Simulated scan of single mutants.
Amino acid sequence: MFTSVDYEKFRALRITQMALHFEELLKDDGNDHRTPEDLFLTAAASALETRRATRIDKLIAKARFPIPHASIEEIRYLPERGLTEVRMQRYAVHDWGADPTNLLLVSPSGGGKNYIACAIGIAACLNEHSVHYTRMDELARELVIASGDRIAHQALLNKLSDVDLLLIDDFLTIGIDAAAANDLFTILDNRDQRLPTIIASQSGPTYWVETLPDKVAADPIVNRLASRARTINLGAVDMRRLQAKEERARRDHWE
């Protein structure tokens, strides 16, 4: 078996996990009939899968999803929601790095935009894409705070410009000031035709143009978001109310 000196060498080569898998295979009497080459390749595959799982866990944690358990498999396809299972399964395996097309999720409050956005974002992480989730009010606040430090401000703009998938929830649910709107334009312009953005909102592009404070910047911001975007209109089903009603029924709730 391997010694502590051996493991120091493995750590230097960054193959400690592979060595551990290999040692476990050697200790298993059921593998006596297998060749060393076969065991070596099995250990390498196991180590790579462990490394991939760790990388995915880090991507999901770094994205800061408010619903970290959201899953495309758990989405409910009610007829009124404008969703199809085929379309969502495509998003489950979508190569965001190869397709810069934006996605707009639109519905009134309670329509399930937040869950679907998180589910798509987590699926992107499972495919090893970097994702950044933020609400519009949080993003505006981050930009204002960072604006006091030129280096920190530029670093934030660079991060949001270069992440594989940027996901902005509650888009323009509340207004933003002109400085935040200008920064938003910079981010979207940097991403335009290069990297995709997902927008979840209670309203659509027409309202966004009217709401943005800088009318000169409003048209190019909305143009970069909506001109080459896929749109999912989730309809008026209040999923929050529906789920609460079903939960009361399951628990034999009384009032």
Rank of each mutant, 00 (worst) to 15 (best):
F10I: 04
M1Y: 05
L242D: 10
N114R: 12
D57A: 14
A140L: 02
D170F: 09
P205I: 11
R230N: 15
R224Q: 07
I15R: 02
H94E: 11
A226C: 13
A179Q: 12
V216I: 10
R64N: 13
G235H: 07
L48D: 01
L139W: 06
L143D: 04
A249K: 06
G112I: 01
R191N: 05
F2L: 15
N102P: 06
I151Y: 14
F185E: 05
R14E: 15
R81F: 10
L225P: 06
L13P: 01
G148E: 12
R34A: 11
Q89K: 09
D28K: 05
P68Q: 03
S46A: 12
D164Q: 15
V209S: 03
H153M: 06
R34I: 06
R248A: 00
E37C: 00
T197V: 15
P108W: 02
H33S: 11
A123W: 09
G82L: 01
S109D: 13
A217R: 03
R240P: 00
A98K: 11
T231N: 13
A63T: 08
L160C: 13
E138M: 09
G97E: 04
R51S: 13
A117P: 02
A218T: 00
P66I: 04
I75H: 10
N127Y: 07
D170C: 09
N190W: 08
R150P: 04
Q243S: 03
T16L: 09
S4P: 05
D6R: 11
T134A: 11
M18Q: 08
A45L: 10
L105T: 05
A140F: 07
K9I: 11
L143Y: 03
E8I: 06
I56W: 07
D177P: 06
F2E: 14
Y207G: 07
L59T: 02
L160S: 12
L188T: 00
M136I: 15
L160D: 03
T84H: 01
D29Q: 08
R52G: 00
K58I: 15
V209E: 08
R240N: 04
D137P: 05
K113A: 14
L166R: 02
R248P: 08
A179Y: 11
E255Y: 06
N158D: 14
N102R: 01
L26K: 08
R191P: 10
L139P: 07
T134C: 10
E85F: 09
P205E: 10
E73K: 12
T173A: 10
S4T: 12
A178D: 04
E23W: 02
E247S: 06
L166M: 07
E85P: 07
K245H: 11
I176P: 03
A226F: 03
Y91A: 01
V93A: 02
D32Q: 14
N31F: 03
V131K: 05
R141S: 12
V216D: 11
G175Y: 09
D177K: 06
Y133V: 08
P196A: 05
N114F: 05
R87T: 13
R191F: 08
T173P: 00
E49H: 06
V222D: 08
Q17D: 13
S227M: 07
L167S: 04
T211H: 02
I60G: 04
L143V: 05
T50E: 15
E37K: 09
A61R: 05
I122W: 03
K113N: 14
G121Q: 03
A146G: 10
L188D: 04
S71G: 11
T54Q: 07
A236V: 15
L188N: 10
G110A: 04
E210F: 01
